[in-house]
Design a protein around this nucleic acid. Structure first.
Length: 474
DNA sequence: ATGTGC
């Protein structure tokens, strides 16, 4: 074991955590709480970890509901780090009889989407300036207001992108023409869960559905933080047969989208974290972690429907971002084909083994499923395939993990030179210079050890690597 | 994560 980690774990033991390890798999539990399952995390060698993240993990595992709901297992991904709501980013939570709104938070159905395109890298780079100008002209600065009719919006919120498409085929709108809609219809099969869960418009913000229009809610915008749109090059293919089957070839141009449910997820997440507080049984001691589960069956059902509503919105948000990018390529390069490889959520509660599995910043990694692990700005991204590892709760990391807070980099007196931030050679278009600093490569851990640890543990296998050419951040 | 914080 690494000396630094050893010191950290000793400190955690003094703070009331039982700590054990077996190879690279570490487990923690609150001392004296024999009923709680241990919380496990796989750690790559020589990467910084924060004690607070371990604390959050142990408290999550210790959670139970007075009505009998329980936590069955907690597992964290190798990129886990402390989260604001008391739940570490990278936590995977298996429960029965309870769900935890704070274990998803506000970034509901944050996820990844990958397309490849039959434009050569050379041709693309030759028109880079024109491409950037067109991109600035619409969604990524939020200047393009995407609206839709009441039937399409209601169908979207109830059923996801398939419902939206059915209504949209009757009344084409805004950014999509009829020919494009036929392709979108064919691509629904490449969206995890078919791009839809059972939701209901009643959970969307009131302003969102007013006058039967969906507007001013950030539809087809990237969002902040680690979210991005990136043009990439497939720099290496490791599993040729699988990559071929997925339409991915070495040297291809590709684009990747990391975005979520924007204001709709925030609305649902905030409302339900409050609701969980209100619904906590009178007289029952509050968990010291501040993490509050829902245990009443009816409330659980309602929360999941609200979460699904925001998730449906996120699926469409990523779809529209991709559609705008695909159209921009067509404007510049003619009849471009840019098929979807896969779209996968990494912030969602889903049914699992008779209970629920909440992934907070963790990518589903079921057997044979495409897994998309983005690198941070300037870093390689990975297309992998899941191995269905039950010990890891069929989950992989959703990135490299943040190493430094936004504040510590932007205003914490850090060296803001290009070299110190790791920005040398990075081509990034942002709305504000501040973003480049907050999300600079120096803000994140290296992705390679995080990926390697998961390959060695049998959680995922590598299919292809993608190198960034041009990154857009809000 | 969030038209935002430290």
């Amino acid at each position: 074991m690494q000396p630094k980690l050893n010191r950290l774990l000793r400190a955690l033991a003094r703070e009331g955590l039982e700590v054990a390890y077996d190879g690279r798999l570490y487990s923690v539990r609150l001392q004296g709480d024999a009923h709680a399952p241990p919380a496990e995390v796989l750690l790559p060698p020589d990467l910084p970890v924060e004690g607070k993240a371990f604390q959050q993990l142990a408290h999550l595992a210790a959670l139970r509901h007075p009505s009998g709901g329980q936590v069955l297992r907690v597992r964290a991904t190798p990129d886990f780090h402390p989260g604001d709501s008391g739940v570490a980013i990278g936590s995977v939570l298996h429960t029965r009889g309870l769900v935890v709104p704070g274990a998803i938070g506000t970034d509901i159905n944050c996820g990844m989407r990958l397309h490849v395109a039959n434009v050569s890298v050379e041709a693309f780079l030759a028109k880079r300036t024109a491409f950037v100008e067109r991109m600035k002209g619409h969604y990524f600065f939020g200047t393009r207001d995407v609206t839709m009719g009441s039937r399409a919006s209601e169908a979207l919120l109830r059923d996801g992108v398939q419902g939206w498409l059915v209504e949209t085929l009757e009344r084409p709108l805004g950014c999509a023409g009829r020919a494009d809609l036929a392709q979108l219809d064919a691509e629904v099969a490449r969206i995890h869960l078919g791009g839809g869960l059972k939701g209901h418009p009643r959970w969307a913000p009131e302003s969102f559905t007013r006058e039967g229009l969906v507007r001013d809610a950030g539809l087809a915008t990237i969002g902040g933080g680690n979210h991005f749109v990136e043009v990439q090059r497939v720099e290496a293919v490791e599993d040729r047969a699988r990559a071929w089957g997925w339409g991915v070839r070495e040297g291809q141009l590709a684009f990747m989208i990391h975005s979520g449910s924007r204001d709709v997820g925030k609305h649902v997440g905030v409302a339900w974290q409050d609701r969980a507080r209100q619904a906590w049984p009178v007289g029952a001691p509050l968990p010291e972690s501040g993490i509050l589960p829902l245990g009443d069956a009816r409330l659980v059902e309602q929360y999941l429907e609200a979460e699904a509503t925001a998730a449906n919105y996120a699926f469409l948000n990523r779809l529209l971002l991709a559609e705008l990018l695909r159209q921009t390529l067509r404007e510049l390069f003619g009849d471009v084909e840019a098929p979807l490889v896969y779209d996968v959520p990494h912030n969602l509660t889903l049914p699992y083994e008779g209970g629920w599995l909440a992934r907070k910043g963790a990518c589903p990694a079921g057997a044979e499923q495409p897994v998309i692990i983005p690198g941070s700005m300037g870093a390689t991204s990975f297309l992998m395939v899941g191995c269905g590892d039950a010990r890891a709760l069929e989950s992989a990391s959703h990135g490299a993990g943040r190493a430094r807070s936004r504040f510590s980099l932007s205003r914490g007196g850090a060296d803001q030179s290009e070299a110190a931030l790791g920005l040398t050679g990075v081509d990034c278009i942002t709305l504000r210079a501040e973003r480049r600093v907050e999300e600079a490569p120096a803000a994140y851990k290296p992705i390679r050890p995080v990926v390697d640890a998961q390959v060695e543990a049998g959680i995922v296998r590598e299919v292809a690597r993608l190198a960034p050419l041009l990154t857009f951040k809000a």
